[in-house]
Amino acid sequence: DEFHFHWNGRDIRVRGDSEELRRLIEAIKRGELSEEEIERAIEILER
């Protein structure tokens, strides 16, 4: 699976399928994380 979302003017695409990944992306979409937490998560996910 590939998750695709927009954040902070960026087009983010992440491959993978796990419950943890889904929860993280939902939290990002709901605005539950700080900008710094989101940046760090995206860096890890894009590897």
Rank of each mutant, 00 (worst) to 15 (best):
H4Q: 05
G9D: 03
L24T: 04
D11T: 15
R30G: 13
I28A: 03
F5V: 01
H6N: 06
D17E: 09
R22G: 05
L21T: 11
H6S: 05
I12N: 00
L33P: 03
R13D: 06
I28R: 01
G9Y: 01
E20A: 13
E43S: 10
I28F: 12
S34I: 05
S34L: 06
L45F: 14
R23Q: 08
E39I: 07
S18Q: 08
K29S: 09
E32T: 13
E19M: 14
D11N: 11
E35A: 12
L24F: 11
V14N: 01
H6T: 08
E20H: 10
V14M: 05
L21M: 11
H6V: 07
D1P: 12
R13S: 12
E20S: 11
E26R: 15
W7Q: 00
R40C: 02
I25D: 04
A41I: 14
R15V: 13
S34E: 05
E46K: 06
E20N: 09
R23T: 09
I38L: 10
V14C: 01
E20Q: 13
E2S: 07
R15P: 13
R47P: 08
G31W: 09
S34H: 06
E20M: 13
N8Q: 09
D17C: 04
R22S: 06
I38K: 01
I42N: 01
N8G: 05
G16Q: 06
E39P: 04
W7V: 02
G9I: 00
G9L: 00
R10K: 07
A41S: 06
V14G: 04
E2Q: 05
F5Q: 00
S34V: 06
R13M: 14
R23L: 09
D17T: 08
I42H: 02
E19R: 11
E46Y: 09
G16P: 09
D1Q: 10
H6C: 06
F3P: 03
D11Y: 15
S18Y: 06
K29G: 09
K29E: 09
H6Q: 07
L33E: 02
S18V: 08
E2D: 12
R22T: 06
H4C: 08
R15W: 13
L24W: 09
A27M: 14
S34R: 07
E2L: 05
A27S: 11
G16H: 05
E37D: 11
R23P: 05
F3T: 03
I44N: 08
R30Q: 11
I25K: 03
E39R: 07
D1M: 09
L33R: 03
S18N: 10
I44R: 10
E36W: 15
K29M: 12
R30D: 07
R10M: 03
V14F: 11
A27T: 11
R23K: 08
I38S: 03
E2W: 12
D1Y: 07
F3N: 03
F3H: 04
G31F: 11
E35L: 10
L24E: 00
E36A: 14
E26M: 15
L33I: 08
H4E: 04
F5Y: 04
E36R: 10
A41R: 10
R22A: 06
W7G: 00
D1G: 11
L21W: 14
N8I: 02
E19Y: 15
E39V: 09
R40W: 12
D11L: 15
E46P: 03
